[in-house]
Amino acid sequence: MAPLEAPVEKWTGKIRELKLGSGGRKTITVGGGTTLPFVKFEGAQPHRPAIAIEVQDKEPTDWSEFLVSAWGDALKNPGAWAKKAAEFGADLLYIRLASAHPEASNTGAAQAKKSASEVLSAVDLPVIFVGPDVAEKDNEVLVAVSDVAKGQRVGLGNCVEKNYKTIAATCMADGHVAIAKTPIEINLAKQLNILLSDVGLSPDSILMDPTTGALGYGLEYTYSVMERLRLAALMGDGMTSMPMICTAGEESWRQKESKATLDVPQAWGDNQERSLIWENVTAISLLAAGADILVLRHPKTVVTVKAALDKSF
């Protein structure tokens, strides 16, 4: 019979390539795709999605026992934690400067510099730093980190619609990448990219965080917004074509399906198995929707997702 003609879409756009890491630090490039995720018959995905592991600059107090036992004492020290994350196979690290939150330890620039230096000297992986998501504190600690990491092209976030100018400016000055975070909505994502570009930040230095909904907690919204962003980019929209980062681990481990260990309904099954699959399923379906960087928490999920990626490419 006649050979089947592949139903190729003629995309005019592509996902921007984004490089993290520089100045002696390992580099990683994500994006660059000219096709939908994992669809090979019509284009290329030159860089496979990357796995980031979340590290915090203070010991988390509300983490699941399964996470705590997997990480052990490393949780007490960001440098040690970063090192262990590298051993567990992270492509890059996602450092949450949680101690700066006014309701946590309310630390400031000095502590942020110290934590950042510890992480940066402990590992040579590319790094993303995010603040506590409180505007004033974010600006304070991220500007401090930017200075420490000058020339190493780290990610700094989160830029949000109400607070992006300071972080964008420091990214421009020190050659970093800005994380643009928006509520789960396609227009808001594009709008923030435009605002960041309008203040002079190169679109090639923006990583989008479309806000992750965990499995059972808005996953489908994130999923569709990401698919729409990807499609828009492939159709030639330069303001939606930034690579995307998803905090799948954080969101999935926040839910009661991953936290609860007491009075769990029988139908939920084994606590640890379920918690792991919850993070795993969240991560995999976001990959299918177009995630370029997944931020995970449990080392076993990292192994499963990396194995899936190995097979996919």
């Binding site: 499995l215 059972g216 996953l219 489908e220 999923y223 399906e257 029988q266 139908a267 939920w268 099954g269 084994d270 606590n271 198995e273 379920r274 699959i277 919850w278 795993n280 399923v281 379906s285």
Partner: peptide, 18 residues
């Protein structure tokens, strides 16, 4: 089959087909 496998997958199906 295990409940810990079924529950997340059934939830995903529900999400995607909403």
């Amino acid at each position: 089959f295990s409940p810990a496998l079924a529950y997340p997958l059934l939830t995903l199906r529900l999400n995607i087909y909403t």
